[in-house]
Design a binder for these strands. Structure first.
Lengths: 400, 400
DNA sequence: GAACTCACGCGAAGCGCTTCGCCAACTACC
DNA sequence: GGTAGTTGGCGAAGCGCTTCGCGTGAGTTC
């Protein structure tokens, strides 16, 4: 049924069998659909079929087109007519038919949001983007179409070309994103959460990951840490050229030495077991490392590895993560973070796109969220002497 | 821009001002849209307008209707014709036009998913439902429309009535849900994540919260806990008759005494500060309480209150939560939980709905996820003597 | 080989709306 | 009072597809 996490679970040989059993254990009941019969009958007796514009026109004693113009306001209609039409609309509780309107006008009043490709890589942050976009979309009286399969430029393009949506929002963009190029070619409106190498004429909202890494490093340097790890986005995304990942690496490797920090760059998935492994290896091989920066949810595995190694946060080890505040505050200890206001980002991206759709010659809007540090409980001064402590023996803990 | 959490933040007088400043601080750039001009020009020169069925028909030298029948298979077409048509389709890279198809056939091949009403109450679990439903929907070649405004039965009904979706998925259902009644009246297909009082003929997937509470209590009783709190869904949802909340309360209040447990029932929002307050009050007023059950994310506030009171988990206090395993394992310590396989639930709900849409006389499917305990790190034997310890002085910690 | 099937294509009528072009009635002006 | 200019309403032609009913030619039957 669901494939999420399956591969990683198989790889680490963990609860995959368990979760399969869990699914099989779903308690199923089947009933004949007889229960619906009375309802169906009821319907047949009372033809509640929604009113059409033709019926409104008839009832109001006007032409079909007049009703349309009253509704759209695209041509002046006399007050008298307008009132008659509105009365009929209210009496019959008329609502326009979506697809018909879309077909005739060529605009579906819908935007599509594409989820990052491998769906099982879904991060909490992505979901918050979605929530923000949903909110903004509803507020502007648009609809939101949620799709997977974001990798294929064709799929993305077709959604607009075939009238399902008027524009799209893309996330997890890479430096030279084929989807973006395709959309530009087609002249399809779009907005990004993230950005590309060349952002000329492209509307986007993105976190300034370069500034984020820099700010995190500065802060940790000030606390006296001299060896810091960066848990960057996973290798596959880095290789794919994920803009955020590339920038983070570049800045990290350039700035850390300048601040007198030994930097350890670790591309690493957010999957708890993998992040745990990576972190455990780090703690073993780099005893001087006393702090880490994470670009996402790699901190879950890191925190467990620290616990397994009997290292206390923040006394023995400091953790800074790029993260939405609602998540940072959910944890105990709460996480010091570079704020990534994801809900607002999703909201803004949808707004930008809708602005493009509703106003001609809309300006290109580019929002780069500046790095802001929120100091919470997971960071402290660099400890002395961890380097001289015996290398820890680390074993997985808990359900892992 | 975003109103999420605003009310609760105002109530507790916390980072609302901060987050507003953060928004204002978004770095904005505006460019003239001149960047688009060349693209628009390029388009005008190369009319990439997608092919229509009429063009396929012409190219294949057959009637329009034949093309349609080849595509739908609703009437037999000779092999020769079919090949000619398919060839034309491939050559012109034809894709059907969504709205046109929806208008003509009356089916949009889309399902709508309604998010719980106050969007800012969004829980991680809801997002996972969405992810699961998205996955299933894409797998069945359907589209997913994501909407807010779930409370109003009219809004929900109109989505189907006006052709935007063929059916809907509802979550956060109450015992006598007006939306469900309305959908039944209209004869609109739907599926629930959650359930109603009378589930005759209704397809749903739901967690068995009654069994969950019972299992949690049994487990805690076996560990020797004699006073247990239930952090139930928040008061407003309980008052509204949220099925899960009502069942949880009923079972808790009936079963706890039978097991020799003093039960403290605490309706409580998941909002960290509110949950913190409720938990802090509990720890102060019920020194004998050594364990808690939470129906959702109230554990975040609870864990912080425990930390503030210097109570260790699980040594001094045990926590069991109804939770999706991926979240339980994300935390440190990981959370003992009653497994709520939310991704699978969302997936299943979408499948159920699509089954109703694609097969006539589809059976009513009802999946009640049985309570399953996953023991992790947040539970242990009841401590002795917390009752005799001095009542703790509790102060908010960290960013709170 | 005439009558009768069938299988398979075709044309045309919508689905519910938008939008264009046109015309009637009314104002304004010399 | 005649002509030009305006306002506001109407009809009809689509948008791209589905689907119904009919017609035709090949295959069958006696």
């Amino acid at each position: 049924m669901s494939k999420r996490f399956d591969d990683s679970q198989d790889a680490t040989n963990t609860p995959s069998a368990k979760s399969r059993a869990k699914l099989a254990g779903l308690h199923s009941v089947e009933q004949s659909s007889g229960g619906y019969a009375p309802v169906a009958e009821f319907r047949r007796m009372t033809p509640t079929r929604p009113a059409t514009m033709a019926e409104i026109a008839e009832r109001a004693g006007v032409a079909l087109s007049t009703v349309s113009y009253v509704l759209s306001g695209k041509r002046p209609v006399s007050e008298k007519m307008r009132e008659r039409v509105m009365a009929a609309i209210n009496e019959l509780d008329y609502r326009p038919h979506g697809p018909a309107r879309a077909l005739a006008s060529g605009a579906s009043h819908t935007i599509a949001l594409f989820m990052p490709s491998p769906l099982w890589q879904l991060l909490p942050i992505h979901q918050v983007f979605v929530a923000g976009a949903t909110q903004a979309t509803s507020a502007s009286d648009y609809s939101l179409l949620l799709s997977t399969a974001a990798t294929d430029p064709d799929t993305v393009a077709q959604v607009v070309a075939r009238g399902r949506a008027d524009g799209v929002i893309l996330m997890e963009t890479v430096l030279d994103d084929p989807r973006v190029e395709r959309l530009q070619q087609d002249g399809s409106p779009f907005a990004l959460i993230g950005r590309t190498r060349d952002t000329t004429g492209i509307s986007y909202v993105d976190m300034d990951f370069g500034a984020a890494v820099e700010l995190g490093l500065e802060y940790l340097a000030r606390l006296g840490h001299t060896c810091v790890a960066l848990f960057n986005f996973p290798p596959d995304l880095l290789d794919a050229g994920l803009t955020a990942a590339v920038i983070a690496q570049e800045v990290f490797e350039r700035r850390a030495p300048e601040m007198g920090i030994r930097g350890v760059h670790l591309p690493c998935s957010h999957e708890p077991h993998e992040a745990f492994e990576v972190a455990a290896r780090l703690l073993r091989s780099e005893p001087e490392c006393t702090a880490a920066l994470t670009t996402g949810w790699q901190f879950t595995g890191l925190l467990r590895a620290l616990r397994a190694a009997d290292l206390r946060v923040p006394n023995d080890f400091s953790v800074v993560s790029v993260i939405a505040s609602q998540f940072a505050e959910m944890l105990t200890p709460s996480l010091t973070g570079i704020e990534w206001p994801a809900f607002e980002a999703g909201h803004r991206a949808a707004e930008m796109l809708i602005e493009q759709l509703t106003t001609r010659d809309a300006p290109t809007r580019q929002h780069l969220v500046p790095a802001q540090l929120a100091v919470r409980e997971s960071t402290g001064p660099a400890p002395r002497g961890r380097a001289s402590m015996p290398a820890p023996v680390i074993e997985p803990i808990g359900a892992g």
